[in-house]
Nucleic acid binder design. Sequence first.
DNA 1: CTGAGGATCCTG
DNA 2: AGGATCCTCAGC
Length: 197
Amino acid sequence: MAAIITADWCDRAATAVAPDLIGCTLVRQFASGIIVRGQIVETEAYMPGDPACHAYRGQTRRNAAMFGPAGVSYVYFIYGMYHCLNVVTDAVGQGSAVLIRSAQLESIPPDLPPKQASQPKRIAAGPGKLCRALQLDRAYDGLPLEPATGLWLEHRRGDPPELVQTTRIGLSQAQELPWRWFLKGSRAVSRGIQSSR
DNA sequence: CTGAGGATCCTG
DNA sequence: AGGATCCTCAGC
């Protein structure tokens, strides 16, 4: 069984954590006890001073977790429909996090919406789809990433994977910053194998 | 209290 | 290309 990722490992700049998280495992234990694992294949970094970062205009109720200690979840609600999962990074007071955009699940999670049955590899291909598949909502905002909360991370084993670094997706500001990483050749990346928008 | 916008996703 | 859908925050 792989080693669990600790808070101090996340206590670095988001741009350092984001590529290191590729190939690591996101683990979700549902209330029923069922455990689903997924290999993280796509991440984005959001930094202090970054206009696209939710923390850019200071702390609010919504983004409070980003200013807290590293190794905690930040889950937000977007477009009236989707939730997105982040790992909070860096020191207390630094509003920064890594968005988990896609994971390749090792098993089919329970209670999937009927529509999502098609491609197993793509069940969590995209930040909104990932949270829907793993049943994560704002109740999971601000929780330490550890087994007791039903959501945690495990280190990868073996050699570092081959990464592609490119620009982030879906932004109206700071679109030029190359702070998105994905696993080279992965078919579980959001929007197929696209690079940017 | 009001309104504008958003780190998405699916359909046509 | 456009629509669904609603929370959040800034502004009045």
